[in-house]
Design a protein around this nucleic acid. Structure first.
Lengths: 257, 257
DNA sequence: CGTTACCTTGAATCTCCTCAATACACGTGG
DNA sequence: CCACGTGTATTGAGGAGATTCAAGGTAACG
């Protein structure tokens, strides 16, 4: 029942905005292309960019936000907390991921989102989501696709926390985030900037910090990865995958909204 | 690492079909109404009904189905299995719930769905989903709503399995299914037909059958509920809710597709 | 009346948790 | 420059919690 320590937010950085037409993510092979009318709509739909410093709470449980976000760069974490401080990580948000859709079915957010690095977000007014559905069925389909994709990741996490051993859980999470990082072009060689602390990992896999640390120590002996500071190096993708019963899967193509 | 026992499928029952205009679920206050054009579309979208017996596998992991389903009556369970037989329940499907949307982002299902009672399903061709998005933004929005709602339930389960104590987990699941059952008119007085075995509950909350049984025994002493056979009686909703840190929430209104 | 599915209970073992102490890197202010 | 606080990682020890194995028990069903 460890309650998470607080991290002090760092100040945001000034920067110039990126029009959707020059979105660096869209250049990646992973993301499907917009049609010209869709691109035009997105330029109008996007109300601005928000740059927040590491540690900033982007969305707070129990509050409501008139905005939807997309991660343009940086890492964030989505989590829930119980009354006594217990925290469970639900998922991580990497570039291209949607933030805030879940709250559309509720009056207030039922989870929080916090920046793990400096993060740049694309901001969209929630009220215009209806217009998106009304005028651009293709984009609407993409939104649904993203929601389903999120649900699939969540399912995998639930299986991990419910049925996998400590070793399997860590291997699964490392591998999954490595795959996801690679999809958004964050992997250089075999190395990924990995802004996750052991405490955060513990709250992801459902173990105490101490037990996570000890399991990690055992797991390092497989020499399938190296993780120190905020750098993760996958030495043997196959070796790491073999430590998990059914390794994470990743779609080849995905939409970007 | 218990592997679930097999249950033998019982034969389906012959029955007459229900047109969407006379859908018994739509009569419930919980579900939002269709507009006339939406209703007309749904009549065409629905390709038929499927009645399956208890124990039938509706959707199997690793296969693909050209159909989407909606539960018209009965209970089903959505779960994943690992290679060695470990099983994790992801969610339950009650009347009004959607089945099969998650697979739209993948080429094959990444989970299975099994009927817990005799179940009647409304069947929709997956290929026409695009038409739905194209012609009926309102229904498309509803589909997304349902996906997000599913995701929220999944989040709650993840928090349970990751951070809640054995007692809390059981209380949470009982209460959540009671609420959901009530929303679809399945609760008579304080009593709900509850086709869940302790083994299934164990695979839902992430504990072994033995430990689930022992925890349940302790929990019964609170006299907040009675559960025997396949009948669940909630004696004190408040009492049960107090055993959980943050009890399940339920939306007042929801769409039905 | 035996089989099957499900529920119950005890005992031994191991996993995981909490508490507690130490260590290191970093930045801040004296 | 060093002292100090803070955030993070590490390790040991003792105890609570969960698992597995094993054995019964009950109700339903052919």
């Amino acid at each position: 029942m460890n309650s998470p320590r607080k991290r002090k937010p760092s100040p945001p950085q000034p920067r110039v905005q990126t029009p959707c037409s020059k979105c660096p993510l869209r250049a990646l092979a992973t993301f499907r292309d917009f049609t010209p009318p869709e691109l035009a709509f997105m330029l109008d739909f996007k109300s601005g960019e928000l740059a927040v410093g590491s540690g900033t709470t982007i969305l707070a449980e129990g509050t409501s936000s008139p905005h939807l976000f997309t991660v343009l760069s940086g890492w964030a974490v989505r989590y829930k907390t119980l009354g006594d401080g217990r925290r469970q990580v639900l998922n991580y948000a990497l570039p291209g991921d949607f933030i805030g859709l879940q709250s559309s079915v509720l009056d207030v957010n039922n989870h929080s989102v916090e920046a793990l690095t400096d993060v740049v977000l694309c901001v969209f007014p929630r009220e215009k989501l209806w217009e998106l559905f009304n005028k651009h069925a293709g984009l609407a389909f993409d939104v649904t696709w993203l929601a389903s994709h999120e649900e699939n990741i969540l399912s995998d996490f639930l299986v991990s926390v419910g049925k996998r051993t400590a070793t399997e859980r860590i291997a699964f999470v490392l591998l999954q985030l490595y795959y996801r990082g690679r999809q958004c072009g964050l992997v250089k060689g075999t190395s990924l900037h990995f802004p996750v602390t052991q405490e955060l990992l513990a709250d992801t896999i459902g173990f105490s910090l101490v037990h996570t640390n000890k399991t990690l120590k055992r797991l390092r002996r497989t020499r399938t990865f190296e993780w120190s500071g905020s750098s993760l190096d996958i030495l043997s993708e196959e070796g790491l995958a073999q430590l998990v019963d059914s390794p994470p899967i990743q779609p080849k193509q995905r939409p970007l909204i």
